[in-house]
């Protein structure tokens, strides 16, 4: 009797420990980082073969950029479109459809054809304040209405107008990553950051912090507890320069050609679609708190607006999901 008892217990313990051991082997976690789309892309994957999956996800982002979105490449779909002024591609058309729709819904506050303007300000290389006349001239070469969709065919009707995915590309990458993850059942949990646009996918809750402008130490001004979603932020602190005491940032008003000046420092959008989170972040920043909140609601998105007085405005649904850091006050719009 005693012997049997000992043997059975020993066997059970061995089996249990082997199970624990093997489960650790499988549910591994991997984190990989790369530079693409002119920004830092990081992905954290939890699940079987997480290392392989993380690598494949980064490849997807790189391919997306080189094959479709980069406007600096001659071979990408965007490059071809901007050069030939017409291209037939279902993916590209698929990206542009919601952007055109958003441009209309936001009354032109969101516009994806502003490259002549942003190149003028050249935030990424040698920023300068352009002359009024230069701005007016550049504005002539912008306008989303010049981009027409006919099924899968995209046509730009004005020769000087070009398409720029700068304010939506990161979101598109999130959607592509989500597509990939949904196909792989071995992936249990994914958090991807494409230049600050975040994709959370998997069971349970995720904690996403909103970066405090100008903080080198990764400090946050608020933390959001969310279920799986896409989160994107537009901030005036990302790319800007200062001259004569004034701050000029990269989020331009498509109507005036000058940086949006409404006291906002950042907008963060939370919702299902990646491309919309990215585009809406820019659109809502330009629209301001009231109109921005309404716009977000139309798309079933939640929004966070932060102004230069350290006040954080949120749409009602986020009331129980947000914690603001010291020094910030919370207002529900």
């Amino acid at each position: 009797m005693k012997k049997k008892y000992i043997i059975t217990t020993a066997l059970i313990t061995t089996v249990l420990s082997l199970c624990v051991f093997f489960s650790f082997l499988d549910s591994s976690q991997s984190e990989k980082t790369t530079v693409s789309m002119d920004t830092v892309v990081t992905v954290k994957v939890k699940g079987k073969n997480s290392d392989e999956a993380a690598g494949e996800i980064l490849d997807i982002v790189k391919t997306l950029d080189s094959k479709y979105l980069s406007r600096f490449s001659e071979k990408s779909m965007t490059g071809i479109l901007n050069r030939e002024k017409t291209v037939t591609d279902s993916e590209l058309a698929g990206f542009l459809l919601p952007l055109i729709s958003l441009s209309e819904k936001s009354n032109g506050r969101f516009d994806f054809t502003l490259s002549p303007l942003s190149d003028l300000w050249s935030f990424t290389s040698d920023p300068r304040i352009p002359k009024d006349s230069e701005i007016k001239a550049a504005l002539q070469n912008t306008g989303y209405k010049n981009v027409v969709l006919n099924g899968d065919t995209v046509t730009i009707t004005d020769e000087n107008v070009s398409v720029d995915f700068g304010s939506a590309g990161k979101g598109i990458a999130l959607d592509k990553i989500r597509e990939y993850c949904d196909k792989k059942s071995s992936i249990k949990r994914v958090v991807a950051s494409v230049g600050g646009s975040i994709l959370c996918r998997g069971k349970g809750t995720f904690t996403v912090g909103i970066k405090k402008p100008g903080s080198p130490g990764g400090e946050i001004l608020a933390a959001l507890t969310l279920k799986e979603c896409c989160v994107s932020t537009s901030g005036s602190y990302e790319r800007f320069f200062e001259e004569d005491g004034r701050i000029y940032h990269h989020i331009l008003d498509p109507k005036t050609g000058y940086p949006v000046d409404n006291g906002l420092v950042s907008t963060t959008l939370v919702g299902e679609s990646g491309i919309l989170s990215d585009a809406l972040a820019t659109a809502c920043f330009a629209a301001g708190i009231e109109k921005g909140a309404a716009l977000a609601a139309e798309y079933n998105f939640d929004a966070v607006f932060v102004d230069n007085q350290n006040t954080v405005y949120i749409t009602p649904n986020l009331r129980n999901s947000i914690t603001v850091s010291d020094g910030y006050s919370l207002v529900v719009v």
Partner: peptide, 8 residues
């Protein structure tokens, strides 16, 4: 703690 991510 560990944030899952920081958006910026």
């Amino acid at each position: 703690g560990e944030y899952d991510a920081v958006t910026y």
